[in-house]
Write a protein that binds this DNA or RNA. Structure first.
Lengths: 229, 229
DNA sequence: TGAGCTATAAGTGTCAACAATTCAGGGAGC
DNA sequence: GCTCCCTGAATTGTTGACACTTATAGCTCA
């Protein structure tokens, strides 16, 4: 099915999954040869995939040293969410200026729909809708560069942090209210307000993730090694 | 001298130079084999360098197609500067909150120094000081992720656009005034104002670059080819 | 016993050949 | 005369082997 892309892209996805599933826990050594053997592939594609992960800053890198999956340091979390505040806030402002009226209504409708569906169900419902909401607004900014940065690189990291910190399904009803306010601001074409609301929204989400960080961030994955596979 | 890094890094720098100097003009085909021969190196390092350039979106990329240096489309310029507005604006706000008082004074002093030096000289003086000013503020934000994005990837592109559009040395005295206002806002710890001023400053710079774009952006480099070397 | 040095092993960087895919040109068919 | 397909050449993707760098473990020496 997804056999259309190149091997490097494939390995990239699989590596991402390995990291998501904590099979490659934070701090784990990323060994090109071992991974190549595991995926039944040469070191070339693996190397390429690892370099891409290094580009996202999902694994650390210095020339001849071995690469490691990043750890869950509060500082890195803070920096990631600050960057999201800057970029997504600005994207919201742009969206308020540029978003198609029909798309605004579709966004609002989708939001209500998700609320009705998710209300009675368990509270840990898929964070997919959250990503969907944010992604829609980001895409509405009409800036491909910002879209690529947020929806490509940064969201990988974001999902990772939420998963690692176990703070996924929380704050759902609060988030709904905040999302709704943002939509209203966009509908009113109030870019200033939309940006401000989005920033607050993300800042609160950051606090939530930070509160759920494992006590000793380092201990999670230090000395873990992929060769256990 | 700079023979410490890996070959891939080296080729990356040299490729960047080639693009800066328009030896690889916008739209030019980036041929791995040709470049490898030119640099007396295997295709591996070249491949790696090209992938990095693709990560910066400095050359386009689709799986099996040949890569090309990006062209000078107004849309891409607009998107780049919007992203800078978002990121550098936010960085200015953070800098106002976090910058060391001594560093603020040093920044102000450096600004005045550059002005005194550059005033009598030619107006096309090095844009290095501009980059230096912006880079200092960005670094003062204390957010390594934002610093890497702005000072690493985006500034390559920015330099490129300024060079291609020939809008380098303009706006110097105006820029000085704007820079000075930003420093004052930071000194007063007024993050809100610093962000606003930085955004306006960048927006004006964007207009300046856009105004200097060659009439038909496409015509500059279409069908140009590196194999002429 | 512990600090520092040395050899060995592990891992990354680089290379040249091979396979898979796309692009360009010409010829057949309508 | 135009379109479509087919074939050959150019280019990218992939592979396994080799070279160089770093880290680990053992050894010597205080």
């Amino acid at each position: 099915m997804a056999q259309k892309a190149t091997l490097g892209d494939d390995v990239f996805e699989r590596l991402l999954d390995l990291i998501y599933s904590c099979e490659l826990p934070p701090g784990a050594v990323v060994n090109e040869s071992v991974l190549a053997a595991r995926f039944s592939v040469s070191r070339g594609p693996v190397r390429e995939a690892v370099r891409r992960l290094q580009g996202i800053q999902l694994v650390s890198r210095e020339p001849f040293m071995r690469a490691r999956v990043i750890t869950l340091e509060p500082r890195a979390v803070r920096e990631l969410f600050e960057m999201r505040e800057a970029l997504e806030g600005y994207a919201s402002r742009l969206a308020a200026q540029r978003m198609d009226p029909a798309d605004v209504e579709a966004l609002a409708a989708g939001l209500d729909h998700n609320r009705r569906i998710g209300l009675g169900a368990d509270d840990r419902q898929s964070p997919a809708e959250t990503f969907d909401f944010h992604e829609r607004i980001v895409r509405a900014s009409g800036n491909a560069r910002i879209v690529d940065t947020l929806c490509g690189d940064l969201y990988h990291l974001l999902r990772l942090y939420r998963r690692w910190s176990g703070s996924a399904g929380e704050r759902r009803s609060i988030a709904y209210t905040e999302h709704r306010q943002i939509v209203l601001a966009i509908r009113n074409r109030d870019g200033e307000l939309a940006e401000s609301l989005m920033r607050s929204h993300i800042a609160r989400a950051a606090e939530n993730v930070l509160r759920h960080l494992p006590a000793s961030a380092e201990a999670v994955g230090t000395d873990a090694d992929v060769s256990a596979a």
